[in-house]
Computed example of a mutant assay.
Amino acid sequence: MQLIKSRNTPALKRLSAAAPEDVYVVLATGRPCIGIKRCLVELSLRVDGNSCIINNGALVERMVDGSQW
């Protein structure tokens, strides 16, 4: 199952690579954590500082270690 449309993947990768050090990429989805992990790996977003908003906005999770806040 493809989570990110193939036409969007290159643009998202360029965005992530071009972002300055003090700019973070935040993915937001209604999916649970397990449903977004493949996206994080595919886009190389599992780095310190990046977060994702999951479970319809109920949780914010750090991508690098999975801690929630």
Rank of each mutant, 00 (worst) to 15 (best):
A58V: 11
T29V: 10
M1T: 07
P32D: 14
I34H: 11
S16M: 09
A28Q: 05
L45M: 13
A19Y: 10
R62V: 06
R46I: 01
D48G: 01
V23Q: 07
Y24R: 03
D65R: 01
W69P: 03
L45I: 03
R14T: 15
A18M: 08
N50S: 00
S16E: 07
R46T: 01
L43V: 05
N55E: 15
V64A: 02
R31P: 09
A17F: 08
A28G: 03
S44E: 15
A11I: 13
L43H: 11
A19Q: 05
V25M: 02
A19L: 12
L59W: 12
R7K: 14
I53K: 08
I4G: 09
L43P: 02
M63Q: 03
A58D: 11
N56V: 13
I36K: 06
I4C: 11
S16R: 13
I53C: 11
A17K: 11
G66M: 04
R14G: 00
A28V: 07
N50C: 07
C39Y: 09
S44P: 04
M1R: 04
L59Q: 11
V25C: 00
V60T: 07
W69H: 04
I54F: 12
K5Q: 14
N50F: 00
N55F: 14
A28L: 09
S44R: 06
V23A: 06
M63G: 00
D48R: 06
I34K: 14
A19H: 10
G35S: 07
V47H: 08
D22C: 05
L15E: 10
N56M: 12
W69Q: 03
C33T: 11
V41M: 13
V25D: 00
G57C: 11
T29E: 06
L27H: 01
V41H: 08
R38D: 15
K37D: 11
R7Q: 14
L27E: 01
G35T: 05
A18K: 03
L27W: 01
A19T: 08
W69N: 05
P32Q: 08
I36R: 06
R38E: 15
T9S: 08
R7C: 14
L27I: 02
I54C: 12
C39P: 02
L40C: 14
N56W: 09
V47S: 12
A58C: 12
V60Q: 07
C39L: 13
I54R: 01
P20N: 02
